[in-house]
Computed example of a mutant assay.
Amino acid sequence: MSHTAHIPSHRKPRRSASKLALRAGVAGGVLGTIAVAGAAGPASAEPVTETIEMPTLGSLDTAGLASAVAASAEASQQEALDQSLESQENAALQKAAKEAKKAKAEADRKAEAERAEKARAEAEAKAKAEQERKDAEERASRDRARTQLSTTSTSDNSSSGSNVSDSGSGSSSSSGSSDSGSTTSGSNNETQAPSGSAAAIVAFARAQVGDAYVRGGTGPNSWDCSGLVQAAYAAAGIDLPRISYDQSSMGTSVSLSNLQPGDILYWGSRSGSYHVAIYVGGGKYVGAQNSSTGVVEHSLDWDTPSGAVRIL
């Protein structure tokens, strides 16, 4: 018996035979098969074959890959389109906001202009109504003055007719009374014609009767009150200030019962008059009254002045 003991090996038995079979169907897109064959036991054992099926490259669907690529490209294109649309929408929103802001500013400007125009129209209407009211008051005052003057004239004519009858009957005392009355009744019944500078002033003033009244007017066809007085005195070679209160401050004061042709009549105070005219004799004056009447000749009773000054 051998002294050498047989020690069995713990290594796995070597496979003495193995076979690998690979069948690929790349072109046909079929599954390939890898066959691995090996011996499970010692070299003398029968070969054992194990078959494992694995996907091959051919198993990928070419049409599906193309579809996936196309879908990715379409998604990228859609994203780019969405971004472009979003940019356009933002630009449109900004443009709309600017246009809305501009439209609002224009609307505000028009509204302000309309308010200003309405206020101006209301102010003009108010001023017109006030002027019409004043004109109506002046017309009413003139009508009352005319009525009073007409009544006075009728009474004077009746008295004059009675005196003439008495004179015609040979009453020397009545005649004397009539003559005395014509010379002592005061300036309202004055019949003596003016002469010299006074005549030139009166003639110029009466020649403008009927001309228009314009504030600040100095002729030749439109006047205001002080412009007419200044021009009338200029016709006689006398220089006067342009403003009414300066004109009424010149010369010497005279009473309304002692007027002479050419005297300057004023309304208001002497140093603060607001209207002037020229006494032309016979209890009348010529003045540029207002825009409704223009230059007129009126009785002192029509609008009694506050006072008078004498320059001549």
Rank of each mutant, 00 (worst) to 15 (best):
V69S: 04
A37S: 13
Q94F: 04
A103S: 09
A140D: 11
A92L: 08
E132M: 08
A119P: 13
E114T: 06
K101G: 11
K104C: 06
L149P: 14
E99C: 08
R146H: 07
I52V: 04
D143M: 10
E46H: 05
A92N: 11
R120M: 06
A145S: 11
Q148W: 02
E138Q: 09
K95F: 01
A92M: 04
R109E: 08
K102N: 08
T62M: 02
A63C: 02
S87Y: 03
K118R: 09
S67A: 15
E117Q: 09
S76H: 13
A68N: 06
E79G: 14
E130A: 04
E114P: 13
S150L: 03
A39N: 07
A125K: 08
E53Y: 09
S76N: 14
S87T: 12
Q148A: 10
V69K: 11
K102A: 06
E50I: 04
S67T: 10
S141V: 10
K126S: 09
E130I: 01
L85C: 12
G58D: 00
K128M: 09
K102G: 08
E99P: 15
I52E: 00
E124D: 12
A113N: 07
M54A: 14
V48F: 00
R120W: 01
A111E: 01
S76A: 11
V48M: 03
R144G: 07
L93T: 06
A111N: 04
A129I: 01
A91R: 11
A105Q: 09
A123W: 00
A121T: 04
D61T: 03
V48K: 04
E79S: 15
E124C: 04
A105V: 01
D108H: 01
R133E: 13
R139E: 01
T152H: 06
N90L: 10
D143P: 06
A75M: 02
A43T: 08
L65P: 15
M54N: 06
L65D: 12
S84I: 00
G58S: 00
R115C: 09
E112P: 06
A66G: 10
E137S: 13
L65A: 14
G64R: 06
R133Y: 04
E106M: 13
R109F: 02
A116H: 05
E86K: 11
R146F: 01
A37C: 04
G58P: 04
A107M: 02
Q131P: 12
K118I: 02
S150I: 02
R120A: 09
A127W: 01
A68F: 14
K98S: 11
P47N: 10
E89P: 12
L81M: 10
K104E: 12
S67E: 08
S84N: 08
A37K: 10
L85S: 15
E53Q: 08
A92T: 05
L93C: 12
D135T: 07
E53R: 07
A140S: 07
E74Q: 15
S141A: 14
E122H: 02
D135C: 04
A96W: 05
K134A: 14
D135E: 12
T151S: 09
S87R: 12
A45N: 12
G64L: 03
V69H: 07
A140N: 14
A107N: 07
S72Y: 00
D135I: 03
